[in-house]
């Protein structure tokens, strides 16, 4: 399994990582090695085995519909990169 430069660029875009041009060959190599490792799963006969998403074979617990939280905006926004008028500010989003 060998990933191309384009594969790496596509994955990096999906993951929103600005991988540097000069790092691409190294990523392609490392990721290909990891995929080689993973490749051995393909040989396993797992027909009819139910996928296991979770160690616990139990079901979701339901919360009662109650408001338990209060306004803590100023505290939460004290760790934000940029805010104004109670809003988080980001570079202009164009739809």
């Amino acid at each position: 399994m060998s990933l191309s430069r384009e594969d790496v660029e596509k994955i990096a875009h999906l993951a929103r990582l600005a991988i540097r041009e000069e790092d691409i060959p190294k990523y392609a190599q490392d990721l290909s090695n990891i995929l080689d490792l993973v490749e051995q799963l393909k040989a396993v006969d797992s027909d009819g085995v139910e996928p296991m998403a979770h160690p616990l074979e139990s079901s979701q617990r339901l919360r009662s519909d109650e408001v338990t939280e209060t306004d803590e905006r100023s505290r939460f926004q004290s760790v934000a990169p940029k805010t104004e008028a109670g809003l988080y500010l980001v570079p202009k989003v164009i739809e």
């Binding site: 993973v38 799963l41 393909k42 396993v44 797992s46 085995v49 139910e50 996928p51 296991m52 160690p55």
Partner: peptide, 10 residues
Amino acid sequence: KAQQVRRLIK
């Protein structure tokens, strides 16, 4: 596939 093998391991 990995989730299936996960069950085999368990």
